[in-house]
Amino acid sequence: MLCTLSNLKKQDIEEIKTLEQETGHIVLAFSCHKSKPSLVDKNTLEKIQSLENKLGLSLVAVEL
């Protein structure tokens, strides 16, 4: 399973902000998706890692 920060509607954001104000805690919203990681060869892994370093992101190769 792979989780990312959610793309929220304005109403969802407002409800989360209200919860944050009530609790005094920052709340992050994640959406999770079923996915199967791909098995990649060393060359592909190096390319993925190189782009991760360049972009400052984590990248995951998955099966469709």
Rank of each mutant, 00 (worst) to 15 (best):
L2I: 10
L2M: 09
L2D: 06
C3K: 08
T4A: 04
T4M: 00
L5R: 09
N7M: 13
L8M: 14
L8D: 10
L8V: 10
K10T: 12
K10D: 13
K10N: 13
Q11M: 15
Q11K: 15
Q11F: 15
E14N: 14
E15F: 14
E15H: 11
E15Y: 14
I16T: 05
Q21S: 07
Q21T: 05
Q21P: 03
E22K: 06
T23W: 09
T23Y: 09
G24N: 02
G24C: 03
G24Y: 01
G24K: 02
H25S: 07
H25L: 14
H25A: 05
H25D: 07
I26K: 11
V27T: 08
V27S: 01
L28D: 12
L28T: 12
A29D: 06
F30T: 01
S31L: 06
S31F: 05
C32N: 03
H33E: 15
H33P: 01
K34C: 02
S35W: 01
S35E: 04
K36D: 11
P37R: 03
P37I: 04
L39F: 06
L39D: 08
L39H: 11
V40G: 06
V40T: 06
V40W: 00
D41S: 06
D41R: 05
K42Q: 15
K42A: 14
K42T: 15
N43I: 12
N43Q: 15
T44S: 09
T44C: 08
L45H: 11
L45I: 07
K47Q: 11
Q49P: 04
Q49F: 03
Q49W: 05
S50Y: 09
S50D: 07
L51C: 04
L51P: 02
E52V: 03
E52K: 10
E52L: 03
N53W: 00
N53C: 07
G56W: 08
L57G: 04
L57Q: 09
L57P: 00
S58Y: 08
L59W: 09
L59H: 11
L59I: 12
L59N: 10
V60D: 11
A61Q: 05
A61P: 01
